[in-house]
Design a protein around this nucleic acid. Structure first.
Length: 188
DNA sequence: CGGCAGATACGCT
DNA sequence: GCGTATCTGCCGT
């Protein structure tokens, strides 16, 4: 697979990831979801974990695209990022929400019986639904076993660009992107 | 349905 | 110590 579509500017990569599918294998069963909401984080951006430089925690963000940066927050939640941008630059795209495409029953089981629009409409919910935890931090998506793969897709119809959610620094940077009128977005 | 409190552990000061 | 790229349950409309 060619990862060059994520190697440019991180805000462009965040938009290219919209519409792409994530396919997850769980106990031999397939779960497939479509990304509908993303946020970009860059090392020159005070809201980014990479802002304070390369540390053991943020190291993977400075690597090449196609790796996962999974962090733990609020004492109980995981959030999943896809490392983007050129190697050496600390940038990644947070996957904030997705739309169920296949294996909805499995998502529901992982999400305490929630269904449809409440399965994947938030970064920590998405990780819970797809069973992504700290063991996935630093994971190389290029390599087998492919229990998680990403399938590129053409750009969706209309992309809305706005400010990011839940941050206290660089609050005006408009690096949140989502598919217009999509009911699976975390917060329209 | 909107607002608020509480949960809870880790990285960094 | 402190702040956090969040979610849930509980309260009131």
């Amino acid at each position: 697979m060619d990862w060059s579509f994520l190697a440019g500017q991180v805000d462009e990569a965040a938009q290219r990831l919209l519409g792409c599918e994530l396919e997850r294998e769980l106990n031999g069963e397939i779960v497939r979801v479509r990304i509908v909401e993303t946020e970009a984080y860059h090392q020159t951006d005070a809201a980014s974990h990479s802002y304070k430089g390369r540390t053991p925690r943020t190291d993977v963000m400075f690597g090449p695209p196609g790796f996962l940066y999974v962090y733990f927050t609020y004492g109980m939640h995981y959030c999943m990022n896809i490392v983007c941008g050129p190697e050496g630059e600390g940038s990644a795209v947070l996957i904030r929400a997705a739309e169920p495409r296949e294996g909805e029953a499995i998502l529901q089981r992982n999400r305490k019986g929630k269904s449809d629009a409440e399965l994947l409409n938030g970064p920590a919910k998405l990780c819970q639904a797809l069973a992504i935890d700290k063991n996935w931090n630093g994971h190389d998506l290029h390599k087998a076993p492919f229990k998680l793969i990403i399938k590129p897709a053409p750009a969706p119809e209309t992309i809305i660009q706005t400010t990011r959610i839940g941050i206290t620094k660089a609050v005006d940077v408009p690096w949140r992107f989502y598919i217009k009128d999509n009911p699976y977005v975390s917060k329209p």
